[in-house]
Simulated assay, not measured.
Amino acid sequence: MQVLVVWAAASTLTFLILRLGAQDTPATPWGGAAPSWGEHMRFWDAGWYNRIIEEGYPARLPVGADGRVTQNTWAFMPLLSGLASLLTWTGWSFYVRAAIVSILASAGAAVVMDRWLSPLPGRRVSLWAVALVWSSPCAAALQVPYAESLGLVLVGLALWLASRGRALAAVPFAVAACFARPIGVPLGAALGLWWAYEVACARGWFPSAWFQRLLPGHGPQSPSGRWQLLVLALTTCTAALAWPAIAWLATGRQDAYTATETSWRGADLAPFIPWLTRLGDWVGPHLGLALLAVVLVAVGLLLSAPSLRALGPAAWFWCLGYLLYLLAFFDPTTSVLRLLLPLAPAGWALAAVAGTTRRRLALLATCVVGQLVWVSWVWDFGSVTIHWVP
């Protein structure tokens, strides 16, 4: 109940920020000036989830004059739209139904993340972490028709169960996560790296002191636990490949999914390269390398933080796998802020290292200021010029 109270307070504040920002929003491709709540829920990618319901997935990929695949619904996983369709009996619009699914999943994610991560830093720290994550700059994405909430609750359930030695029970949630958002690859990678770590610990391939420094206080799992973890990792990797395979079978084009995903960036899939080119677009070719170095240092500092490593192998390997995934495949646009939401365990690490109530309040205030900027400049005014994208 305490977690839900904190979640409700943070989510209500985000709702108020969205409504106040809407009053200053001019006419956009999705609605008139000062849109109502229902119109505000139509912004940006929400419309793609609605098109899944109305049009389905195309059997023939749309192609532009240059011969490249253009934007289409294959880039969006079906789970959010499917769950929203279960509420058709209400008579509400798709956007209202999808927003309700997102809000319920957001509440579930707060509870799950607390149950998973609170035992080590303590309940007080966990409540602060919920406040920080659900007040973060992109927290609005957790209550609009986006699949971020679904992805967060499903990944949290899978990793929570796996961390308790119940990896087989986590399989349905990991598979569902692969059909909620494109997070199956980093989740499978994280689980695979965790399994390799457990095997190395058990067989003494490296000095035990080295592993204790990496994840202090966390011993190896039992042989049964390791086998379950391997099954979970392999199943997740298979499920991560299922959606591209479905797109291939439905369209007859082997690269249907990746060609659709990269249609937003206007270039072929090239691991790691977008970070060099896009950061150069932001600050210039010469400073782009310097900015990339700063990003890599920030990643290293996060992964080496004692407060994150103290959360256990499930949290640490998830953050490692997800960050590697972003660095390998993500095109670093302004969407990077929203795509950092799955790194929610970092909020628990941040709340723990802050130490005092004064510092945590300062962090919370910073989060809310960031949210004001993100909602106004990205979600609202970004929709006019399509310069900043959420």
Rank of each mutant, 00 (worst) to 15 (best):
L191Y: 09
A176C: 15
P220D: 02
L229I: 10
V171N: 13
P244M: 13
W205C: 08
G219C: 08
R164W: 08
A209D: 14
R226S: 09
Q221S: 14
S163F: 00
R213Y: 02
W243P: 01
A209N: 05
S208L: 11
T238P: 03
L229W: 07
P223N: 12
A259M: 06
R253F: 12
T235W: 10
A242M: 13
L249T: 07
G188Y: 06
L215I: 15
R265F: 11
W195F: 12
W205L: 14
A176V: 10
W243K: 14
R164F: 03
L168M: 10
A239C: 08
Q221A: 15
P186Y: 13
L159F: 14
A167F: 04
L152D: 00
Q254L: 15
V199F: 03
A167P: 01
Q254F: 15
A174Q: 01
G219N: 08
P244G: 08
E261D: 09
A176H: 12
F173R: 02
R166D: 01
W160L: 07
A177G: 12
T238D: 01
G219S: 14
T238H: 02
A162M: 00
G165I: 04
A147R: 00
G165V: 04
R226N: 11
A259P: 04
T262W: 07
A209F: 09
G252A: 04
P182Q: 05
F179V: 09
L234V: 15
S222L: 03
